[in-house]
């Protein structure tokens, strides 16, 4: 779609402490039906949203972390993680969920959705967006 707009979702908040992460994901899932160009950025505490092994049973809040793995099925496959935010928190990509999507144009080859980018690279990506939603 040539007239599609570029939508960027910036996620800077950790899950569970506040509802922003979950309600942001709800927007992404609904928004996926609109055939726009969607990207997600996880920066600062937002990177904690993608931690592996989340288990909320003893807290009682819904564990929504499995939903991130479904994003690929919604054609949401541009997920940017800021390198500096990961490093500042002593995390590596191995601490995060492995998110993939299947490329229809390459016989459904499985590809990584997550791209680790530097602050400078992410700043350039932000410049290309039409609409930025912040959570």
């Amino acid at each position: 779609m040539s007239d599609a707009k570029k939508f960027m979702y910036i996620n800077r908040k950790a899950p569970y402490g506040t509802i922003y992460a979950w309600e942001s994901l709800e927007v992404v899932l609904i928004g996926a039906a609109f055939d726009q160009e969607v990207s997600l950025a996880f920066v600062d505490d937002g990177v904690y949203q993608l931690m592996k092994g989340q288990d909320t049973t003893e807290v009682g809040i819904k564990n929504f972390s499995p939903t991130y793995a479904a994003l690929g099925d919604y054609d949401v496959n541009k997920i940017y993680i800021e390198k500096e935010s990961l490093e500042a928190r002593g995390l590596t990509l191995d601490d995060l969920q492995h998110l993939v999507w299947e490329d229809e144009d390459e016989d459904w080859a499985e590809k990584d959705s997550i791209r680790v980018v530097t602050s400078a690279e992410l700043a350039e990506i932000f410049e290309q967006q039409d609409i930025t939603l912040s959570f």
Binding site: K5, V27, I30, G31, A33, Q36, T132, L133, S134
Partner: peptide, 19 residues
């Protein structure tokens, strides 16, 4: 529904978020 937010983004020249 939430689709109204996405539609607002598509239809408008600017979307400004306050939070």
């Amino acid at each position: 529904g939430l689709g109204q937010l996405i539609e607002a983004g598509i239809e408008s020249d600017r979307l400004v978020v306050f939070g």
